[in-house]
Design a protein around this nucleic acid. Structure first.
Lengths: 199, 199
DNA sequence: ATATTAGACGGAGATATCTCCGGTTGTCAA
DNA sequence: TTGACAACCGGAGATATCTCCGTCTAATAT
């Protein structure tokens, strides 16, 4: 969807780039002022001084837009995870998984508002195509689960466990635990530890 | 929301009841013909020959409407669960939990289309108030987890486990497993068994 | 039977989402 | 520099959601 590859065949046209920048700036400003929920795509288009068509051509919906606004943070999360794994290859798989979860939950908390506008961990509405973020986490987690698996476990179980673990960070589950069950990030991690690691 | 208590103080007005019936009939017909996704509230109102205001006064959104359409099934699920527990009080908590999960997944499969229009397992959008279905399942599951808990477990963990177990039946998770991971209901139950029971 | 009134009814209209397409402009090749 | 085209732009408008309020009516009390 987003043409963010390092060297796209044709780089973005100048006017397109300018519009994109104005949209992003307008969105951040309005989100800041009114909260994501209360800002419509129309408002964003007006504030950015572009037509609705221009806005929708670039971002199919508010979710897409929010995703773009945190793309940098997502990239940073991934590099942080990779370097954590590099630096701690001596630790047990359990310990490394906890390390990754700590990074993930820190990211989730930092971007909690923008994340409310987009469920990057699962899929676009109605079509169950994985998001890149899900794929990456999935790969990391499955690897670690496999590493810690004894002979009685099997790959399907690791995949299922990874999917479920990732799902705990969805808006649906994570915010319910935070707001209704009043879990702090630390308590939350403790529960994950008890359920997914202490086997 | 829905005044379905056995003997409401004032019973529904005759015209109101008639309208409700026409709405339900119209909705079922249109959902059947076009699929839930492709039917708008407007269409339903038109087909039922009521104004949009009338429709929206009764059902705040399509999700509410779908919920009403499966309310009977939900009630039946609960009574089935209760009588299962009565009839099998001799079994281990693990076995009883599996029994309940089998009933739940059968219900989920039977009503899979209407359930796509409503996430009864979690909450209304944005406000994290539990649905009655969540509350009931929560209570049943926590009870069984507590029963099977050894001294090293604690109540918070049982609550968390129950929440997570219920969340696996959400559209988000369940349909992803079914459609993308190609899990049959049986395979799905096997995974739940491995993760939540075989401790 | 009639008056009273709580509550339901309808539909106009405010707002939002999203599309379509005629017109415009940046880019690149010549 | 210029021509041609791919890509982008704007905004009108189709459709959907949801609300508001003047009007009407079913239920109850007298």
């Amino acid at each position: 969807m987003n043409e963010d590859s390092p060297f796209p065949k044709h780089s973005e046209r100048r006017d397109a780039a300018a519009n994109r920048q104005r949209i992003v700036t307008a969105a951040l400003k309005l989100f800041e002022e009114n909260g994501i929920e209360d800002v419509s795509m129309n408002q964003i288009a007006t504030e950015a001084k572009v037509g609705p068509g221009t806005l929708y051509r670039r971002y199919h919906n508010k979710s897409d837009l929010c995703l773009d606004l945190i793309q940098d943070s997502i990239d940073r999360l991934f590099t942080d995870m990779d370097s954590y794994l590099d630096a701690n290859s001596g630790l047990s798989p359990d310990a490394r998984l906890m390390g990754l979860l700590r990074l993930l939950i820190r990211f989730r908390e930092k971007k909690i508002d923008l994340l409310k506008g987009v469920d990057v961990l699962v899929s676009k509405k109605h079509t169950f195509i994985n998001s890149p973020l899900h794929d990456k986490l999935q790969k990391l987690f499955v690897g670690l689960f496999e590493e810690m698996a004894d002979s009685s476990s099997s790959l399907p179980t690791s995949v299922f466990k990874a999917d479920l673990l990732i799902a705990t960070f969805s808006n649906q589950f994570y915010l319910f635990q935070k707001e209704t069950r009043c879990y702090s990030p630390e308590k939350f991690l403790t529960q994950l530890d008890a359920l997914f690691l202490k086997k």
